[in-house]
Design a binder for these strands. Structure first.
Lengths: 317, 317
DNA sequence: GAAATAGTGTCTCTCAGACAGTATGGG
DNA sequence: CCCATACTGTCTGAGAGACACTATTTC
């Protein structure tokens, strides 16, 4: 704070100044049926009445920190609090600050500073009707329009986006998408309220980068999980098919990423295969070496019809 | 925003509620004499009167975005605006959002939400006396106490800290530190106001991680620079000696990191050696592959038992 | 039995780091 | 002349990706 403003603050009466509101919004991600979903609430009042928005609310000034406000909002909207074991379930949710958004016109009513948070949650039950979360629902991110609608000036420079683009979706040709999209009835993407499309896009970028060098992909799973389940998390978040064998070996080679439990699953895969060993998260907070995303544009899995990159001779090794 | 708060906001009169203030604080880093410095201002009024703090000030509600407020504060405190060519100099400064801090008691007067920004600047002249920046000065980060003083509850989870710890400094045994510390008169670290030590520590972590995978280390240098100068940036930010030969080859191997200008410096190194070729920043926004930090604890260069790594005499540079 | 999947072995290519080693310039 | 420094060459080891292969389980 510079001198001038120190003087202001010394005789500061907030009622003399243009007010600012501070809200906390949460990008809560989870995995359902192998696809990435985000928690949204339907707005009951204008502006953006009837549109879907990120869950959030006002900071309780003087009472709570930003972190506490985000945790409170998340608990309210997921409908988890009040039930036995809710704390245990919530404690497994990863919550981190994403960034702040403060364009003066991002809310037509007044200048609202929104501090966005990013949450990784295991598959949770549907939000309870009749509670605060009456209008809350999990939406597949592929059904949402991530292009910043209208005004594009937002404040937040998202911390870091290792690579890849915001609209990293491959398109509507994924057969798994058609099921739920068809159930909704329309392949037209949902447009979010305010600048929430931008916030969500930033959150997805952060999530994609974060699971590269942190073990937080495990936050999408139950306490015990298998390597193929963990691979499904990476494939859903990155929207990339990964090589099962190489992924398996790589995960086990990173110290502290996962720890074996000594047991296996009860049944094999849905379409056959042996029973997988189970693991739980290890003690590492940083992955060394990291699980780098496949370079965009590079054919990860299948060879392109044109030129194989290796020497064509030693195919039959 | 959940339903309850939507109703609140519909009939919202901000004067009825506990007010919140929003400030923007800037962690502005630069390189002086091969060492990392941060811009600080001395507080003229309580609380924390006489203590050094990060430059910052109130967001002008309804008028400017968070980004604009940060740029304005930085321009005011560096004393650059108003002079010819100031815009050109400011345009070379990298400015990104760092995170928000909102513990209710972080300011004793009221609940203040601070949105922190991180800036990388080339070596700038000292802030002009007689301006807004009268009490501003660049401080070597090694002279500051980075441990969060007193209350430790701050809101911001810094985006990502690839590795290393908050207190990544090696300690007071660096002979290069003694020179300037002795000039100040005391090796006792300066304690910052509010939770600014925590914010600064988060900013340093971000800076250390950011130059790994982005070309932003060039933002600390003039438009044209040499590879050894670029290496000095990495060595100062990481506080690690790097292998000159390997660093050179690695920088040139990353596509789009630097582009040669075809010329060399006028003179060789201060202590001899050939003239270095000059480069400027290339078009890449992400380094592929990244310049990974040497693993902590691993002896990168040589194990110096008593061998000082830098001549303590390069004060007059 | 057919098909899919868990997990392992192996090869190759790339890249990081450890040294040399050469050329160039300052004192 | 001595020495520090810019820059290049070369070797080695680690890691990522491409297959190939076996074992196991579901339908």
């Amino acid at each position: 704070m510079d001198t001038t403003e120190q003087e202001w603050l010394a005789a500061y009466d907030p009622r003399d100044y243009t007010p600012v509101a501070v809200t906390v919004d949460v990008v809560a991600l989870t995995l359902r049926h192998g696809r990435l979903h985000v928690l949204l609430v339907e707005r009951a009042l204008p502006p953006y009445q009837g549109r879907w928005a990120l869950p959030g609310g006002f900071l309780r000034a003087g009472e709570e920190s930003l972190d506490a406000a985000a945790a409170r909002e998340l608990a309210e909207e997921t409908g988890l609090p009040g039930t036995v074991g809710a704390e245990a379930a919530l404690s497994r949710i990863h919550l981190e600050q994403l960034g702040s958004y403060g364009a003066p016109d991002r809310d037509p009513r007044m200048h609202v500073i929104s501090v966005a948070y990013l949450a990784f949650a295991p598959d949770l039950p549907d939000p309870q009707a009749g509670s605060d979360a009456a209008h809350a629902a999990w939406h597949p991110v592929t059904a949402l329009d991530l292009r910043p609608a209208g005004r594009s000036e937002t404040a937040g420079a998202p911390a870091d986006t290792h690579g890849g683009g915001v609209g990293g979706r491959t398109g509507p040709t994924d057969p798994a998408d058609l099921a739920e999209d068809a159930a909704v009835g329309a392949p037209t993407p949902i447009e979010l309220a305010f600048d929430h499309a931008r916030i969500l896009a930033d959150g997805l970028d952060r999530a994609r980068a974060k699971i590269e060098y942190s073990p937080l992909a495990t936050a999408f799973l139950q306490h015990d999980f298998t390597i193929p389940e963990l691979r499904a998390v990476y494939e859903a978040v990155w929207d990339e098919k990964l090589h099962p064998g190489n992924f398996h070996r790589k995960v086990l080679s990173v110290p502290g990423f996962v720890e074996g439990t000594g047991t296996t699953t009860e049944r094999g895969g849905a379409r056959g295969g042996p029973r997988a060993r189970t693991y739980h998260a290890g003690g590492a907070t940083l992955l060394h070496p990291a699980l780098l995303r496949p370079a965009p544009g590079e054919p990860t899995q299948d060879a392109p019809p044109g030129a194989p990159q290796g020497p064509p001779a030693d195919r039959i090794a």
